[in-house]
Every structure is written in C-alpha cells, then in structure tokens.
Amino acid sequence: MERPLLTVLLLVGLIIGWAVGSAYARARRGWTDYQTAKKSVPGARRGAWGLVRGVAVKAAVVGLLLFGAVAYAAAGSDDETAGPAPTSSTSSTTRDEPSHR
C-alpha cells in the first residue's frame, strides 16, 4: 500500500515542480526582455527626438518659403507688368467757342 502513495506523491511533486519551473522560466524571460528594453530606451528616445527635430526644421523652412512668397507677391504689385495705373476721370468743360446768352 505504500507504493501507490509514493507514486501519487511523486506525480503531485512533478506537477507542482513543472508549474513552478515554467513560471520561473517565464519570469526570467520577462526580466531579460525588460532589461533589454530598458537599455534601448535612451537610444530610441534620441532617435525619436531626432525625427521630430527633422520634421520641425522642414516645416520651418516651408513656412519661411511661403511667408517669403506672400511677401514678394504683396510687394511686387508696382511691377511693370501690372499695366497702366488708372487715371482720375475729371471732366474738363473747356469750350473753344464763346457762349451766347
């Protein structure tokens, strides 16, 4: 009767050992992944800020170009290609003949 009891205890020990061992292995993999990610964060942060800086510089250049184009268009209205300037229409009533009343 002692043999079946030892077999049951051995099976229970194996199941508990397998569960604890797989949990430990999972925890070690998680810890290793965490340490790897923790070490890569400063590099990733630097890379992300580099990308943001690049986009900001490009947006600033485009904005300056647009501002320059608008300023050039606003200041360029007195160009020769603008056509003749409108003249005031004053009607002069000059008569060559003397008026008879």
Results as ranks from 00 to 15, higher is better:
62 V>I: 15
55 V>S: 04
45 R>I: 12
14 L>H: 03
57 V>P: 00
88 S>D: 13
23 A>F: 11
16 I>H: 03
84 P>C: 00
71 A>V: 13
47 G>P: 00
78 D>W: 10
10 L>V: 04
75 A>P: 00
91 S>C: 03
82 A>G: 12
44 A>T: 10
18 W>F: 14
50 G>L: 01
2 E>C: 02
31 W>L: 14
75 A>Y: 07
28 R>T: 12
14 L>V: 12
41 V>Y: 08
64 L>V: 07
53 R>Y: 03
95 R>D: 03
3 R>C: 01
21 G>M: 10
97 E>W: 06
50 G>D: 03
19 A>C: 05
4 P>N: 02
66 L>A: 11
44 A>F: 02
79 D>I: 02
98 P>W: 10
37 A>Q: 14
84 P>E: 01
16 I>K: 06
82 A>C: 05
80 E>Q: 11
71 A>M: 05
28 R>F: 02
24 Y>W: 15
14 L>C: 13
93 T>I: 08
69 A>F: 08
97 E>C: 02
31 W>E: 15
43 G>C: 01
88 S>L: 14
43 G>F: 02
100 H>M: 09
51 L>F: 08
25 A>C: 02
46 R>L: 11
17 G>Y: 04
89 S>W: 10
83 G>Y: 03
88 S>H: 06
99 S>R: 09
68 G>T: 10
66 L>N: 01
9 L>H: 10
38 K>L: 12
66 L>V: 15
8 V>W: 04
36 T>D: 07
93 T>C: 07
44 A>L: 15
11 L>G: 01
